[in-house]
Amino acid sequence: MLPERIAHRWAKALYELAQERNEVETAKEELLQIQQLLKTSKEFFLFIKSPIIPHKRKAEIIKKLFEQRFSAMITLFLEKLALKGRETILPEIVKAFMDYYYERNGILVAKVVSAAPLDSSILEEIKAFLAARYKKQILLEQEVKPRLIGGFQIWVKDKMVDLSIYGRLQQLRKQFHLTEYKARV
């Protein structure tokens, strides 16, 4: 089975458990921290992904790492995950949980990719535009990709509006490719 599908099931179970215990917000906060940790600490990422360390050992280490810092529910969840041998898809589970959380709370995640960091006023404007269009609360993520040269792209799920120089150049290239050059000189 694809990791995304497995992750979805784990995430849903965790979400429902958290809801029962009224701990959805803490769960979300803590998972966000884990996401951050996965991004910033290469050691932690490799530890999670490692196929060499036995699952039991991983569970013990996880317990030691998080017992004091995170709520009991999340620590237990991570331990269980390790014991079941599913800790390698932790990044996917976190993502699936966040998707589920946003969906349940009517939040739409959008992303702005730009060549250079954008002013907050522009970001606000984009946010307002999207909110009016989709009639939903918008959580705007920001990403900087110098490859775009200039302009920006707005992503909403798998839909994208390309207003970047890079995209324009790509389109231009396609145009040249389509209309074969005919000698008229």
């Binding site: 839909k159 994208m160 509006v161 390309d162 324009r168 145009q175 209309t179 050059y181």
Partner: peptide, 20 residues
């Protein structure tokens, strides 16, 4: 002139694209 002609079909406004 040729470039302009070749690009006459080029649309400059952005479309909503669906990307996977």
């Amino acid at each position: 002139a040729i470039l302009r002609q070749e690009l006459s079909g080029f649309r400059s406004e952005a479309d909503l694209e669906e990307v996977g």
